[in-house]
Amino acid sequence: MSNQDARTPRVFLVRHGETEWAKFGRYTSTTDVELTAKGALQVSSAAPIPRKRAIKTFELLMQSPPSTTAECEVTYTEDIAEWNYGDFEGLMEWEIKSLIKTKGLLQGREWNIWGDGCEGGESMQQVTERLDRLISQIRLIQKPYMNGEKPADVLLVAHGLILRCFLKRWLGLSLDFPLEMMLAPGAIGVLSYKKNNISIPAFHAGIALPFPDEN
């Protein structure tokens, strides 16, 4: 990554730490579930509205002040809330598929949340619309500073599925586009723009570390 690219605004995606429901694979959106002790450690180790688990994750991340004098603005928005699972809330994937089969939904076709959404919850289109709205707001903030004129990084603390949805929309992909991704509890992903160009959104497959003599 060139020094020029290093000054391009970034978007950091942070998934909240482990919860009891997430640990066992239960679909969790509107239900408030606390972080486990392990979940708190996952986030603390990553640190040098949203639900309780996302708020707690943010608080743990920010308990050590950033090493920059730049001002930080905190905003809570439902545009990055987890996909509303509706009738599937609290269920594991095999339970959802069994329920769909029992109700005769999808006519025997395998359920896929990316394209099928959730009965009683959100559709793919609804999730797409709110994520696109958030992405437009972020790009409006970052566009004037594509060459590092002023710090304009954005930190998003949210939930596993919606962050993977966000990455797809950041790249201009449909939510049902087959792009396999992993984002463990407490994990951090980084998005930015290629060639300092607001029209070329990209994700970092890897970030070059600074040389020892660099600030």
Rank of each mutant, 00 (worst) to 15 (best):
4 Q>L: 14
7 R>G: 07
9 P>T: 06
11 V>L: 08
11 V>E: 09
12 F>Q: 05
14 V>F: 02
16 H>R: 03
19 T>C: 04
20 E>R: 01
20 E>L: 04
21 W>Y: 02
22 A>C: 09
22 A>D: 01
24 F>L: 13
27 Y>C: 00
35 L>E: 03
35 L>R: 09
36 T>H: 10
37 A>I: 02
37 A>K: 15
38 K>R: 13
38 K>D: 01
38 K>A: 11
41 L>E: 12
42 Q>N: 09
42 Q>A: 15
42 Q>R: 08
44 S>H: 12
45 S>E: 11
46 A>P: 04
46 A>L: 04
47 A>E: 00
48 P>S: 05
48 P>Y: 04
48 P>G: 07
48 P>H: 13
50 P>G: 14
52 K>R: 13
58 F>V: 02
61 L>H: 06
66 P>M: 03
66 P>F: 01
75 T>Y: 15
81 A>G: 11
81 A>L: 06
85 Y>G: 10
94 W>D: 07
94 W>T: 13
95 E>Q: 07
95 E>S: 02
97 K>S: 06
101 K>G: 14
101 K>Q: 07
101 K>I: 11
106 L>P: 01
111 W>N: 11
114 W>L: 01
117 G>S: 06
118 C>H: 11
119 E>K: 00
121 G>W: 10
126 Q>K: 14
133 R>V: 08
133 R>D: 12
146 M>E: 10
149 E>Q: 14
149 E>G: 14
149 E>K: 11
150 K>H: 15
152 A>G: 08
154 V>E: 11
157 V>K: 05
158 A>L: 03
158 A>T: 00
159 H>M: 04
160 G>R: 01
160 G>Y: 13
161 L>E: 14
162 I>Q: 14
164 R>T: 00
171 L>H: 06
178 P>T: 04
180 E>I: 08
181 M>K: 13
181 M>V: 12
183 L>W: 00
184 A>Y: 01
191 L>F: 09
196 N>T: 12
198 I>R: 15
202 A>Q: 01
205 A>V: 09
208 A>L: 10
212 P>H: 09
215 N>H: 13
